[in-house]
Design a protein around this nucleic acid. Structure first.
Length: 636
RNA sequence: GCUGGUGUAGCACAGUCGGUAGUGCAGCUGAUUCGUAAUCAGCAGGUCGUGCGUUCGAGUCGCAUCACCAGCUCCA
């Protein structure tokens, strides 16, 4: 007998060799029906796995990552089987589960058409109806190669498996695939499936390799869940910042101006200005000094900084100025360092925290540009911290705290934090600095009571870093903030300060961007709010809607009162019916509409309509002014 | 950059087999003075992304190019 410790902490005895499915059945028939996989001592396993030793067991359903993963992995095999049935000559590459469904990469001598997709989906339904049992077996390497001899990609994969590793296969009816698993027990477990899109993908993600055809799909245990998912996608499309940017007249791109170069319209610029004003105020409050630096710099500068060496691919060609090369800046740091070097510094002066909304230009491959989220000219909310080694841990904690404060101020309170550590081969600076800096990053995260993922060896060659991803209203993750050590540039520029003992020492340098870039952050914010910016950010905070011409004069008086308190207000004096004016203001997502008619003029009032809550009734003008001013100050 | 797709009025789209372009919304003009999501009528608006080619004739076919979209790779 073996002892199995279950998720709820209880321990039960089972026959040695019981499968996870047996145990699920023993717990309850209901659980067995929805069970998809098991987690044995934290490791994802098949339901068919036989347990021979005492262990901790967690039965996974579709609510869990592991359960979904298994479910989608099987769905991807069903898709591969369907494609294999319809296109016998197709070569299979890989087909994993991903965060939102699954894909499989195929090598076929012609491209899939939309009709093919339909046929594949239909064949998948057949395979599901056939409810084929899925069996797992393993083979020694030579037998595995023999079995997969017609699948060149599989052969490559098998050959790369390390010596002695188990080579497992999964078989369902006429289809067998090399696969580590886990998988469901039969194809009938998969219910609602839909193929989502078709795209090219390189074999093993390398652009030197052959381009394969990737089919993406999604599957759910219930049709209603699939519908819900599709609705969510529709919602995301409605929130697409590129669409909202045009509809709300916030920004645009112009073919003649150039790709990836943003034109900020008055409305968008007003929101941006509010973001930047807030940003500046907070930075000053938090011990930063604001600096400004030029957009171009002499080639020598970029040679010294090392950018011409390691960042050249992202920089634009130089321009000739009086026979010398000048480059537009892809980063602000060399300029901030130049400020530092303009005079001698004592340890008493440190730390310096210099912040700049610095506009940089980077060459991005044409295929990666994406609205405001990926552009070629953007403004970083950049800052560099220069401090003495002993100040470094406190500075890191301080910057992380400030970062979270800023994100929260904009309505983002869920994060995922990633720490990237020293790369294996290529890096600068001595080992000790890396250890200390990485430790400081981890301790700062712990001090904030936050969890983080460690990307071992994922840091840049010049230092370890923290990246913070925020979660938006649709639960999507966006990378904005980054805090990075730089052991490279202080060395290259020979930055020093005079220590207490009179010796010259090298300061620590930390790059950080909290919002990332104003462009991207604006795009994320726009999608997060579905275009309905909170009052404090909204480009037009209130619009006055007079019912008749004779109400215009009073409308002007109300507007003047609001403007006097820095509220951005407009008056809709068009000769239109009130319903029409309201409809337009509503579509423009203006937070407050102030209807003015005879009653209001008579009582010195406004009839307030909220974008969210509709008609709020009549309110004294001064009372409304106080209300909206308070809301703006509270940033709601 | 790579693979596939798209490009017609400010926006959303239609345009058959190659025969010189249409609808809705927006815009403009006029009428209408009206209380919480669309008042009515009229008018105007296009080198069909760009260039070259095929053809008697190209929005439509071919080639090139630019931009955008989805994905790959990369990243703020």
């Amino acid at each position: 007998m073996i002892q199995i410790k279950l998720k709820d902490g209880s321990v039960k005895s089972y026959e040695k060799g019981s499968t996870i499915f047996d145990i699920a059945k023993d717990i309850s028939e209901g659980l067995a029906r929805v069970a998809l996989a098991g987690e044995v001592n934290g490791e994802l396993k098949d339901l068919r796995t036989a347990l021979d030793d005492d262990c901790g067991l967690n039965i996974l359903t579709f609510d869990t990552e592991g359960g979904k993963h298994t479910y989608w992995h099987t769905a991807s095999h069903i898709m591969a089987q369907a494609v294999k049935r319809l296109f016998p000559g197709v070569k299979l590459a890989i087909g994993p589960a991903i965060d939102n469904g699954f894909y499989y990469d195929f090598d076929l001598d012609r491209t899939f058409t939309p009709e093919d997709m339909q046929a594949i989906e239909k064949e998948m339904q057949n395979i599901i109806k056939e409810d084929l049992a899925i069996e797992r077996f393993t083979l020694p390497r030579d037998k595995a190669l023999e079995l997969m001899k017609d699948e060149p990609y599989k052969v490559e994969l098998i050959n790369e498996l390390p010596e002695g590793s188990e080579i497992s296969f999964y078989k369902q009816g006429d289809f067998t695939d090399l696969c580590a698993g886990p998988h469901l027990l039969s194809t009938g477990k998969v219910k609602a499936v839909k193929l989502m899109q078709l795209a090219g993908a390189y074999w093993r993600g390398n652009e030197k390799n052959k381009m394969l055809q990737r089919i993406y799909g999604i599957a759910f245990p219930k049709a209603s869940q699939l519908d819900e998912y599709l609705k969510m996608l529709e919602e995301a499309e409605k929130r697409d910042h590129r669409r909202l940017g045009r509809e709300l007249d916030l920004f645009s791109f112009d073919e003649e101006v150039g790709p990836g170069l943003v034109l900020w319209h008055p409305r968008g610029a007003r929101v941006r200005m509010r973001i930047e004003d807030f940003w500046r105020k907070q930075h000053i409050k938090n011990g930063y000094d604001i600096v400004y630096t030029p957009h171009i710099g002499r080639g020598k500068l970029w040679e010294t900084s090392g950018h011409l060496g390691f960042y050249n691919d992202s920089m634009y060609s130089p321009m000739d100025v009086d026979g010398q090369d000048f480059y537009t800046k892809p980063m602000n740091c060399p300029f901030h360092i130049a400020i530092y070097k303009s005079r001698l510094h004592s340890y008493r002066d440190l730390p310096y925290r210099w912040a700049e909304l610095g506009t940089v230009y980077r060459y991005e491959k044409s295929g990666v540009l994406h609205g405001l989220l990926r552009v070629r000219g953007f403004t970083q909310d950049d800052a560099h911290i220069f401090c003495a080694p002993e100040q470094m841990p406190a500075e890191i904690r301080r910057v992380l705290k400030f970062c979270l404060y800023m994100l929260k101020a904009f309505g983002f309170s869920e994060y995922k934090i990633y720490i990237s550590t020293k790369p294996k081969d290529k890096f600068v600076g001595d080992e000790n600095m890396w250890v200390e800096a990485t430790k400081a990053l981890m301790e700062a995260v712990a001090a904030e009571g936050l969890e983080c993922d460690i990307d071992e060896g994922g840091g840049a060659f010049y230092g370890p870093k923290i990246d913070i991803k925020i979660k938006d209203a649709l639960n999507r993750e966006w990378q904005c903030s980054t805090i990075q050590f730089d052991f490279n540039e202080p060395e290259r520029f020979d930055m020093t300060y005079v220590a207490a003992d009179g010796s010259r020492k090298r300061p620590y340098m930390i790059h950080r961007a909290l919002l990332g870039s104003i462009e991207r952050f604006f795009g994320v914010l726009l999608e997060h709010h579905a275009g309905a910016f909170p009052v404090w950010l909204a480009p037009v905070q209130a619009r006055i809607l007079p019912i008749l011409d004779k109400h215009h004069e009073f409308a002007e008086q109300v507007a003047a009162k609001l403007r006097d308190r820095d509220v951005d207000v407009e008056i809709d004096t068009r000769n239109e019916k009130i319903g029409f004016k309201i409809r337009e203001a509503q579509l423009e997502k203006i937070p407050y509409m102030l209807v003015i008619g005879d009653k209001e003029v008579e009582n010195g009032a406004v009839a307030v309509r909220s974008r969210k809550e509709g008609d709020l009734g009549s309110m004294d003008v001064d009372a409304f002014v106080e209300k909206i001013v308070a809301e703006i100050a509270a940033r709601v």
